[in-house]
Amino acid sequence: MVSAVLLIQKATPETITQFHDQLSNELPTLRGKWNFNFKIFRNNPYSIPQELAETATVAPESKWLYTLSPSYLSDSSISLINGKSVGVFTNLIKEEAGEHGHSVELSIPNSHLHKGATTDLNDPFDFFVAQKLQSLWTQRQLIRGDGGRIYELENGNLTIRTSNVFLHGNFRGLLVQIEINQNLCNVDDVSSFASTFETIRNKYGIPAGDLSCEVLDPKRLDTYADLIYQYSKILNF
């Protein structure tokens, strides 16, 4: 999956309704509702690199840690640190995921539990960071996406997710997450993504806004890593 994230800051109730109507005319498969939490952490300024510990009282540079927990990845979260490395965390053990009667994208292999490496009482990573890594990271912002809908088009090759974005309870725009199957675009040429997504945007009448289809590493695409990288670029209030 190759993704792009679009934020329409000027969206109004009318334009949102109109956009949903337009999408419905394409007869998409509705994949239910979704929401997300996007947290922004900043490095704790009192954690100082060792070589500066004697001289400085605060850290010289700012670093950022983002966590994204979309509801369609149940019990999972993606985190990006300092625009460099990404980790995907989940709480679900594979055998338990089966019990819930639905397939899940992400899960912990059974042997990890059986061999004693986890207690199976995992915390979400954002909670872990907020509880135990306070000396390193402090939470700055919580951005929530509510009332999201998922549309599946072109026989499942194109997924459009829309969600209203709130920062501290204030409406900040309409977020549109577009995901296309890899065979619909040229994965070897990352610079071509922009025009590919522009075509899709025009085809489905998605209002214009800030669009990000940047990827973390152009040579090695990674669905989750690229997605959170785009979120971090777009939800940068």
Binding site: G83, K84, S85, V86, G87, V88, F89, T90, N91, L106, S107, I108, H112, T118, T119, L121, N122, D123, P124, F125, F127, F128, Q131, K132, L216, D217, R220, D222, Y224, A225
Partner: peptide, 14 residues
């Protein structure tokens, strides 16, 4: 009390 979180996938551009 033990806090834990499980990492199932990592990726970096470094």
């Amino acid at each position: 009390t033990i806090y834990e979180s499980t990492l199932i996938h990592t990726h970096t551009n470094v």
